[in-house]
């Protein structure tokens, strides 16, 4: 990310960045859902699986990370930046 220094010369850059942030926001639940299913693989692989406490720790750590990433993304995204609107800067 660009630091909070001078505004970028090309506005299209900010617009581009916003779009990619949206992509990340869309992808996050998909990745999270897949990772939440991981404990299913552990128990079936060798019959014994991981101890319950390990599954518990895994789930909560995952949960925490997802919350942190979601918080970061939601702070960076500017909801006023309408994706449907064609920005003149993007065409330059």
């Amino acid at each position: 990310m660009d630091g909070p220094g001078k505004p970028p010369v090309f506005l299209a850059r900010a617009s581009y960045r916003q779009r990619r942030l949206r992509d990340a926001t869309r992808l996050l639940p998909v990745v999270a859902a897949v990772l939440m299913m991981v404990p299913l693989l552990w128990s079936q692989s060798d019959g014994l699986g991981q101890p319950t406490s390990a599954v518990l720790i895994y789930m909560f750590v995952l949960w925490f990370i997802v919350v942190v990433i979601a918080a970061l993304l939601s702070r960076l995204i500017d909801p006023d930046h309408e994706p449907g609107a064609t920005n003149i800067e993007d065409l330059r």
Binding site: R22, T25, R26, L28, P29, V30, A32, A33, M36, W63, V66, A70
Partner: peptide, 11 residues
């Protein structure tokens, strides 16, 4: 977990 996914995927 279900509602977590829905809210995280608010977009």
């Amino acid at each position: 977990l279900g509602p977590t996914l829905v809210m995280v995927g608010w977009w």
